[in-house]
């Protein structure tokens, strides 16, 4: 059997889920596509080792998270294999409250956003988030607190102005 077959199967099974993670992490389809493809290329390079010792989904998610909070883009020397259409999701969000939160997320520093996405989208514990991002649990809590505080101020403002609750 081709050595690459298990990797191709992994991409087929998990690629879209990872892309969705990249989307909520970065907030736009271009970065989501870049992050996902870059992380999958790195996963392929480490595939024999990862298969033996780690969960490939967790490994890829960790790569995507760390790439997103780093300066990885300067390392990209090639156009990756695929670039998605430029389309936002605001129209798909059902309430003004959610649209406001999505826009407010875009204003957060990358680490704060990553912590909130890992906690509220991936449902990871603080210890797991710390491992994914390579930071301490205390830093995770600090980022979560600051991020929620900033979102809360935006949400409070929306409620005060529009009475628009989730």
């Amino acid at each position: 059997m081709n050595d690459d077959h298990p990797f191709a199967e992994f991409v087929a099974e998990w690629g879209d889920a990872l892309l969705r993670y990249g989307y909520v992490l970065s907030g736009n389809p271009h970065d989501a596509a870049d992050l996902t493809q870059e992380a999958l290329i790195r996963l392929h390079r480490a595939w024999p080792r990862v298969q033996r010792s780690r969960d490939p989904v967790s490994y890829t998610r960790t790569i995507m998270s760390r790439l997103h909070i780093s300066t990885w883009r300067r390392l990209r020397r090639e156009q990756l294999a695929w670039d998605p259409p430029d389309r936002g999701c605001l129209d798909d969000l059902p309430t003004g409250f959610e649209r406001g939160l999505w826009q407010a997320l875009a204003g957060l520093p990358r680490k704060q956003r990553a912590v909130l996405v890992l906690r509220f989208y991936e449902d990871l514990s603080d210890a797991e988030i710390a491992e994914v991002l390579g930071i301490s649990r205390g830093t995770v809590r600090s980022h979560a607190s600051h991020g929620l505080s900033r979102l809360r101020s935006v949400a409070d403002l929306r409620i005060a102005v529009n009475g628009d609750r989730p």
């Binding site: 690459d4 996902t36 392929h44 059902p94 409250f97 909130l116 989208y121 929620l148 979102l151 989730p166």
Partner: peptide
């Protein structure tokens, strides 16, 4: 309310994510 709203927002937003095209794995390899 905020945390509930945030979970819902991220979940709904994720549905708008693009999907990977067929045959991408071979190119990535």
């Amino acid at each position: 309310e905020l945390e509930t709203g945030l979970r819902a927002t991220l979940s709904h937003a994720a549905r708008s994510a693009p999907v990977l095209p067929d045959g991408l794995a071979a190119q990535l390899i």
